[in-house]
Design a binder for these strands. Structure first.
Length: 567
RNA sequence: CGGGGUGUGGCGCAGUUGGCUAGCGCGCAUGCUUUGGGAGCAUGAGGUCGGCGGUUCAAGUCCGCCCACCCCGACCA
């Protein structure tokens, strides 16, 4: 490919609405073009990268026995009603109507359809294990797209689905898929973490995310500094320090004028926050919920949502709290009846707590569970924070930001039961198919690769996903017939040797060409100029390094092949 | 959806106490010179100033409504 013919122009100034590095570089390099919020065109260079990533994914999927197929983007809305995910996904689900006013959805994912296929094609335990995958366009009406290709509304996703007879067999496939994913990210030149994750709207049991550590990441990863524990903040658990337990004292009313927050109360009474219990109020699918947690901790709303098994969870408004007859700022479960209540385990981690007295300007001291109040459910609903201790080894927890580049789930029989996907086992007994699903966003992976592989000059593509291997840069072609013939023959010879070359044949100044070479980021720059020729050859430079090396023209192809093998 | 911000040639910006043919840099076209880290000179093309409505003798500039995009939060590959 010749740069003079290449579609897509490099820019000197970065469009002002980009502020994630991968977004800036992709725009500056002329690799993508935005059409609407979260909707992008991939220009030829970026599309080559996309295809390379796809192919790496295909190889790894095929290696674990995956069969590629293609499911439709356009799906009947009823399918989503049957699974209940029309509600679980809410507004993210784009919907449209066909000419007969039938509701359709451009699919955001394919569990529904693939389960439908399984229902039709799996009848016997002999039909499994089965691994089906596709690379296909998803549509999600995201509340907010961001970061260029990091979060978009239309994107190619590789989705793999596994079908097994039981959960042990699912575990086998799950492990295989996990390994395939690790291979994919490594081959794409990414540093990643595998973390425990919440399964969100997809449902199911175990779930892991693959996270690329990046400042621009949207997720917070909690990990242990001593052992291998790592989890998405949404899911992370931690050991909360337990203060010294005291003998229960008689409950007592204390005057706390104007103290409404935990900070106020603790400061006013001169106690630490872990000697208090905090009351927080939520509306879960329309129902009021009274949540209690130790004063020094925060509620993890994802955990809470999972406990409540609700589709929609939000903080209650002041009016809603009042309407329940609750005194915000001085509320507790002591003496309160008939309100749905959930508490964090931490109400048992400590004693003689200060809690609200359910009247303005008063609190109660020495409240103890279960002596003084009742709770419907007690479980872990606390947000794990860095600084707390690891539940596995007691080590100190830390946190980093990450981009989620893959997510795998053990679905179990949630979808198969709803869709009626059953098989007959050896004993002739009818059982639901056990499923797993596994997703990778291709464009997000591409963006993540840039987030991790760039410098101040531009992109530094890892060889396996670089749009081209070599940037052949010829200087002074309009004045030197020698340069022209040397460059042209190198172009041919490299292509013949299977090396992918982007040939900068433009009449631009050296500075322009060098800067574009750095910006576009091919792993090797091959320079042909009157000067290099008079020095006896051509100059080979790795993108990641500063220095170039003079090589005889006849040795150049060999030299480059050697470098590519070792990069 | 809540909060903040921006919309002026392809990109980056100026112009906004209303006033003449709307500017600058980059890019683009043509010519000459130049040629190892974003060259110089000359000539030129390209803009219904996001849209609609209003105020006014006069609107890029003032008022109203709408739209789009970006960022921060609530959500996900």
């Amino acid at each position: 490919m010749r740069v003079s013919n290449l579609f897509g122009k490099t820019l000197r100034d970065v469009p002002s609405d980009a502020d994630t590095i991968s977004h800036q570089l992709l725009l500056k390099a002329g690799m993508i073009h935005q059409i609407a919020a979260g909707v992008y065109a991939y220009l030829p260079l970026a599309w080559r990268v996309h295809k390379k990533i796809e192919n790496i994914i295909r190889q790894e999927m095929d290696a674990i026995g995956g069969q590629e197929l293609l499911m439709p983007t356009l799906q009947p809305h009823e399918l989503w009603e049957r699974s209940g995910r029309d509600l679980a996904l809410g507004q993210v689900l784009l919907t449209l109507a066909d000419r007969k006013e039938r509701k359709m959805v451009p699919a955001p994912t394919h569990e529904e359809v693939v389960t439908e296929l399984a229902r039709y094609n799996i009848q016997s335990y002999r039909d499994m294990p089965l691994l089906l995958y596709q690379i296909q366009t998803k549509f999600r009406d995201e509340p907010r797209s961001r970061g260029g290709l990091v979060r978009v509304r239309e994107f190619a996703m590789k989705d793999l689905y596994t079908f097994d007879t039981d959960s042990d067999a699912l575990d086998v496939n799950y492990k295989k898929a996990l390994q395939a994913y690790k291979n994919i990210y490594s081959r794409c030149g990414l540093d990643y973490l595998v973390v425990e994750a919440d399964s969100g709207a997809i449902g199911g049991k175990d779930s892991h995310e693959f996270m690329v550590v990046a400042e621009s990441g949207e997720d917070e990863i909690i990990f242990c500094s001593k052992c291998d524990y790592a989890a998405n903040e949404e899911r992370a658990v931690s050991v909360r320090a337990i203060p010294k337990m005291e003998q229960p004292l008689p409950i007592e009313e204390v005057f706390t004028p104007g103290a409404k927050t935990i900070e106020d109360v603790a400061a006013f009474l001169g106690i630490s926050k872990n000697k208090t219990l905090k009351a927080v109020f939520y509306i879960a699918d329309g129902d009021f919920v009274f949540v209690t947690i130790r004063g020094d901790l925060e509620v993890n709303e994802i955990k809470l949502k999972n406990v409540l098994k609700c589709a929609d969870l939000r903080m209650a408004t002041d009016d809603e709290v009042k309407a329940m007859g609750i005194e915000a700022g001085s509320a507790s479960l002591v003496g309160l009846k008939g309100i749905k209540s959930i508490a964090d385990d931490s109400i048992n981690m400590g004693s003689n707590f200060v809690v609200g007295a359910n009247k303005p300007d008063y609190h109660l001291s020495n409240a103890n569970y279960p002596r003084d109040f009742d709770v419907d459910v007690i479980t872990d609903i606390a947000l794990a924070r860095p600084g707390q201790r690891c539940v596995k080894c007691g080590g100190k927890l830390k946190s980093v930001k990450g981009i989620e580049v893959g997510h795998v789930f053990k679905l179990g029989t949630v979808y198969s039961e709803k869709a009626g996907a059953y098989y007959l086992d050896k004993a002739g007994e009818q059982k639901p198919v056990v499923m797993g699903c596994y997703g990778i966003g291709v464009g997000r992976l591409l963006a993540s690769a840039i987030e991790q592989n760039h410098d101040e000059k531009g992109i530094v593509w890892p060889v396996p996903i670089a749009p081209y291997h070599v940037y052949l840069c010829a200087l002074s072609m309009d004045r030197s017939a020698e340069v022209v013939s040397a460059a042209e023959s190198l172009h041919r010879d490299l292509a013949d040797a299977g090396v992918e070359v982007l040939f900068d044949d433009r009449n631009e100044s050296p500075g322009v060409k060098f800067n574009d070479a750095d910006l576009l980021g091919m792993p090797i720059r091959l320079l042909v100029s009157p000067k290099s020729l008079s020095n006896g050859g051509v100059e080979v430079k790795r993108r990641a390094e500063k220095e170039s090396e003079l090589v005889f023209i006849d040795n150049a192809v060999e030299k480059i092949k050697g470098l590519l093998d070792n990069l």
